[in-house]
Design a protein around this nucleic acid. Structure first.
Lengths: 333, 333
DNA sequence: TTGAAAGCGATACCAG
DNA sequence: CTGGTATCGCTTTCAA
């Protein structure tokens, strides 16, 4: 039988109340008694029951985090950051991998009040879940919201700016034939990055070489490159909607013997781990995972404490990381 | 104020006991009353409290899963499989990302009985955690155990066989100068894969071209290739300890203009997502993620139900996936 | 079939 | 500083 707080109290010759006080670090306990209780706890190998505590306190000490995939280095970094930030405040993180949020069934984390708050990490379709959370009055924060109306409780990265900077970088290197490979229209990030890109070109009085649309994956980049290669007409620079598209694009070029960045410059987006490990190391736009994680944890904690008046969403600046895949336009092209 | 079971009972004009019965699907409730209660539940938007339930029942309905990184497509597949398998039995999965298991502090999931069971996915150092689990009598299953003594409650893939098959494949293609790039000695998988590789060669009466050791990453593969390239002496085939090493190796070859598989064949291990997306598509050894996930869930559930006599560990067969990176030894080499 | 009452293991308020 | 007691919300006997 597992030891309960009563066993500890009995063994220490004190009341459960006092034991509870020690457990919760209340200062109002005579040191001598504290010692006795600590000893009893150790001897019985006692651990308080999370369920009982939650019931009595009305909170669980757990923050839920919902994400859609476990193969993303950006997620990895953000989650680790959040983990630490929350631990500092006595909260633990429970991650749940879910792609779809079933018809009218809510997610189990919110279903039965298993968490004190929720973080949605780049949700695919946040609409239903968010309305459920609002209805149940569960504090939440969205990282990278897709719906504009959810900006108020979200941490986002300025995708417009990211696209703008990527283009500016290429422009400043002297490129005049720049293409953009964007992701699915469905994503807010796709549209914003593209706008930024296009605006930068427009300001420079330039038309894009092309703007192609496809999935955020290697295949799209690869196929597009193959197509252009077959046509025999390449841009001198490409801004890919994300690193995978960029990698696929470069993969095709390498295969065909076209050299990056000598003959063609490539910029990616996200700074996935692999982007800085595969040659040529990719120039890319990084989302500040540390700051995002920290901000998300902070914002959520504030919401939980109810200290927030009208919380405003946060928009962070991305950072252009210049590596090997971009270079000044050569005379050749 | 949130509705409790009492509110539902009152509203339905029945007792909490009956409500509880309906909640738990007991058949012994008059259909008419069932209806009434269901209605009351809907009207009040009532949800049972997980904490209260856990406390009363003595179990949480949650299975914990501990892993070390969120950037691994194999983990992703396994976790999704486990998720589904557990859901079928009414359990939910709470994932925790943890690299180290603090000194004498146990992990929060087991600390306060927050879970009914635990799955350790490719733990880095399982020793301390396992002894803690045993002591607390918490059912657990390890996927890919590192310590031989933990095999009894683990699901593992036959790494020896994987190494053996990779080598056999290369051998059957006529290669005679085969190298192996293995991971850190620390990992059981490293040692097993290498043994399998070496045994296959020995049986064929052959010596390896070389056996190099490094980290499981792109850099190691890349650097090794560069070294050999500089020396001007390459094997005709390479068996890499994992896909990243393979990718790094091929990356260097591509850069140097050495063609895979025409001039050199490469076999990876794990079948990471990217292995089948980057050209040339990698021949690799796949771990059966579906079967692993299913088996892990099954084994754990059995342990929880206490139906297990002396559970024996499970060892699954890996599968060689032949793609584009391997080909018969050309006359040239 | 149904319900009254006794836990489950903590916390919180109020006395002393 | 310490402890009695009610309470959190649900499940589980045990009678009726």
């Amino acid at each position: 039988m597992k030891a309960s707080i009563f066993d500890v109290a009995k063994r220490a010759g004190l009341s459960v109340v006092t034991v509870s006080r020690v457990l919760n670090g209340a200062g109002t306990v005579r040191e001598k008694n504290r010692q006795k209780i600590m000893e009893a706890i150790k001897e019985l190998d006692y651990r308080p029951s999370a369920a009982a505590r939650s019931l009595a306190r009305g909170k669980t000490g757990i923050i839920g985090l919902i994400l859609t995939t476990l193969q993303d280095s950006f997620f990895d970094a953000v989650v680790k950051e959040i983990n630490e930030a929350l631990a500092l405040h006595g909260y633990y993180l429970a991650v749940s991998v879910t792609r779809e949020f079933g018809s009218d069934e809510a997610h189990y984390l919110i279903q039965e009040d298993r968490v004190d708050g929720l973080i949605l990490l780049s949700p695919l379709e946040e609409g239903r879940l968010v309305s459920e959370l609002k209805k149940r009055n569960i504090p939440y924060v969205i990282i990278d919201n897709q719906l504009p109306e959810n900006t108020a409780s979200s941490i986002a990265v300025d995708n417009y700016r990211g696209g703008y900077e990527a283009a500016s970088h290429l422009l400043s290197l002297g490129h005049r034939n720049i293409a953009h490979l964007c992701g699915p229209e469905l994503f807010l990030s796709t549209r914003e990055r593209r706008s930024g890109f296009l605006d930068a070109l427009k300001e420079a009085g330039m038309e894009p070489f092309a703007v192609e649309q496809g999935d955020y994956d290697i295949e799209f980049g690869y196929e597009t490159a193959r197509k252009w290669l077959a046509d025999g007409t390449l841009p001198t620079a490409v801004f890919a909607g994300d690193d995978y598209i960029a990698i696929g694009f470069m993969n095709a070029l390498m295969e065909a013997g076209v050299r990056v960045p000598e003959q063609l410059s490539v910029v990616g987006y996200d700074d996935q781990d692999i982007a800085s490990r595969l040659r040529p190391f990719l120039t890319t736009v990084r989302q500040p995972s540390e700051r995002i994680g920290l901000a998300a944890a902070d914002m959520l904690l504030r919401k939980i404490d109810g200290k927030t008046k009208r919380s405003a969403g946060l928009k962070l600046k991305p950072e252009l990381i210049i590596r090997q895949s971009t270079a000044a336009r050569g005379e050749a092209n």
